[in-house]
Design a protein around this nucleic acid. Structure first.
Length: 595
RNA sequence: GCCCGAGUAGCUCAGUUGGUCAGAGCAGGCGCCUUGUAAGCGUCAGGUCAUCGGUUCGAAUCCGAUCUCGGGCUCCA
């Protein structure tokens, strides 16, 4: 077994065992508590409880529970495996309704690793005098092997993840094989905290969420707006080169449109409520596609026009439940970089392959290099003809293969109207984000009775591809901000160069250096010498300006600058101005970190 | 929407058991300093302690409701 797998198996086991100890501690402290499931998860574990008298955990309880757990660890109790028949199992857990439900559910969901039921055998693990838990195992030999853990948070969770079922009290924890590994993990959390886009958004003055506007509705400040504009400008240029045409559509539409598209039927709950005007009912749009379709159907189309690729930064509104809002990552109003491609059935496979290659190329330009795709197939609730689903799914699979991207198949995860490929990216600290999505729509062309006249002079139904590349501009902005920890590459930095005259009498020279940089279309700021140099350098560093330029007596005399570049350990002196301008201009043209 | 937690100056936070507890640093304004690579000095201004109600002789502090934010759950066309 490779080393990495070995350590993962070890962590898995000890997290699982620590979860048992957690349950043991909780049932000691809250006699009569019912325990549900407690699996290992990434970096840790959790356990769900139903406390007597409808009690709730509070964060203050965590240290008490932890103390109890440490006492159990100190006793070094042995984990003993036992096997029972179903009947014995029901007997053993007679006062544990959630365990009974698991045992009774043999055959349907018996796969969960926390659940020790397989075939006609029920296995359990016992440690200490009183605590026994239904469990498949394996476990560490005894509780003494545990100890590098920490309880992290309390939460509520629905039994079986179903919001119609009882809400249980969940405790999360993290556990590791050594004190060092635990410390590393806690350090990683701190680092992730430092790159939180909400924190950086405030520190760098990029955006905020005014309460007067409402939750999930951000405003972008000048510097955030500039970064966003640079992202959008680049995107527009690339789309134009790739044969897309730009359209603009309104934010509202009559209910008629969403009745035809089916959104009112399927997703009314996610739409903002309607407005009545002059006897008609209007809705804010939750998607752009119906409007792009109306551009298509505005006149008769010939096969010669296809593929027709329409693009828009279209702002949509979705009524997200208050508890799910999360910075720019989950908002109620956002711009999709939305495009809809209409093509003939013969063009579908080729168009998808080109499209996926285009998507990956643009993502790379933004410095994202590590991709994985998910091919989501027909869900249980679907509309349309299964044969068409198969064709579309196959075309997507071929596109993924030809793009050379690693992909996994997510059975049944497709949208109700379409199979899709979702592209995930890995950021600088290894987190995965879903960004782009490509969907082959099997419904809209029929609903809107779309057609084109073929070479055979008869009418045909076009295929339709939905595609969002950034996904949402706001969300992609947040992902980049976290990926770069605020230190954007030169081409995206709102201020690329800060020029600092050492003394006031260097101001004229500083202005002339700044002028030369502006001539080269670079974004530059001069900060007057009203404050000492060290203070101004510190400020510019905190603003994460890529190049800080210092000009003093020597520079005025020789026509040079001192360059303090982000990420380099020591400043350079005596760099000729023209060389520096050329260097920044070259960096500005370089999209992506690698190139 | 549900569970838990948090709201004190623009930001980060102090503020013992209810009684000079309305404070500090940074940021901001003004003045001085004329500065060579991550915080020069002085000074001024600022808050209905989220909001509303209650308990009390007295509330930032205790209780209730509401709002906002955060962490989860569910959801994410």
């Amino acid at each position: 077994m490779p080393e990495a797998d070995k350590i993962n198996a070890l962590r898995h086991t000890l997290r699982h065992s620590t979860a048992h100890v957690l349950a043991q501690a909780v049932t000691d402290l809250w006699p009569g508590a019912k325990y549900a499931i407690g699996p290992p998860i990434e970096d840790g574990f959790y356990y769900d409880f139903d406390l007597p008298d409808n009690a709730r955990f509070s964060e203050d309880d965590l240290s008490r529970i932890e103390d109890k757990m440490r006492a159990i660890v100190a006793e070094d109790q042995t984990f003993e495996r036992e096997e029972h028949t179903i009947e014995e199992g029901l007997q053993l857990f007679a006062d544990q309704p959630y365990k009974l439900e698991i045992i009774e559910g043999v055959g349907d969901t018996a796969d969960d690793e926390a659940e020790g039921v397989g075939g006609s055998i029920v296995s359990s693990y016992r440690n200490g005098k009183t605590f026994v838990d239904l469990c498949r195992g394996p476990h560490v030999a005894s509780t003494g092997a545990l100890g590098h853990f920490k309880l992290t948070k309390v939460a509520a969770a629905y039994w079986r993840g179903d919001e119609r079922r009882p809400q249980l009290q969940r405790i999360y924890g993290t556990a590791w094989e050594s004190a060092g590994a635990l410390a590393d993990y806690l350090h990683r959390l701190e680092e992730a905290e430092k790159r939180d886009h909400r924190r950086l958004g405030a520190e760098l003055d990029l955006f905020h969420f005014p309460p007067e506007i409402g939750g999930g509705l951000p405003v972008f400040h000048p510097k955030g707006g500039l970064i966003r504009k640079l992202m959008e400008d680049f995107s527009r240029r690339e789309h134009e080169k790739a044969g897309y045409e730009f359209v603009y559509t309104p934010h509202l539409a009559k209910s008629t449109l969403f009745e035809i598209s089916g959104h009112l039927g399927w997703y009314k709950d996610g739409m903002y409520p309607p407005m009545e005007m002059e006897g008609a009912t209007y809705y804010p749009k939750p998607m752009n596609c119906p409007m792009h379709i109306l551009v298509y159907t505005s006149r008769q189309r010939s096969y010669r026009e296809l593929p027709l690729r329409l693009f828009e930064f279209g702002t949509v509104y979705r009524f997200e439940r208050s508890g799910v809002l999360n910075g720019l990552l989950r908002v109620r109003g956002f711009a999709q970089d939305d495009s809809h491609i209409f093509c003939t059935p013969e063009q579908l496979a080729g168009e998808l392959a080109d499209l996926l290659a285009f998507v990956l190329r643009i993502l790379r330009a933004f410095g994202l290099e590590d991709f994985e795709a998910e091919l989501a197939t027909r869900p249980e609730k679907f509309v349309g003809d299964p044969a068409e689903w198969d064709t579309a799914t196959e075309a997507l699979r071929e596109a993924a293969e030809s793009a050379g991207i690693a992909f996994v198949v997510a059975e049944g995860e497709g949208a109700f109207y379409a199979p899709k490929i979702d592209v995930h990216v890995k950021d600088a600290i290894g987190r995965r984000w879903q960004v782009s999505t490509l969907q082959v729509d099997l419904q809209m062309p029929q609903r809107f009775d779309m057609e084109f006249v073929g070479a055979d002079n008869t009418r045909h139904r076009p295929y339709m591809i939905h595609r969002a590349l950034f996904g949402s501009v706001e969300r992609f902005f947040a992902i980049l901000l976290e990926h770069y920890a605020g230190q954007f590459p030169v081409w995206l930095a709102p201020v690329q160069v800060t020029v600092l005259p050492v003394r006031s009498d260097h101001q004229g020279y500083a202005d002339s250096v700044a002028g030369q940089l502006r001539e080269a279309d670079l974004r530059v700021e001069v900060v007057e010498a009203t404050e000492q140099l060290g203070g101004r350098i510190r400020r510019a560093k905190l603003e994460k300006v890529p190049f800080i330029v210092v000009v003093g007596d020597e520079d005025v005399e020789h026509g040079t600058v001192g360059v303090n570049a982000a990420g380099s350990s020591k400043p350079e002196r005596g760099v000729p101005v023209a060389d520096f301008v050329g260097r920044v201009a070259a960096a500005d043209r370089t999209h992506s970190t690698g190139g």
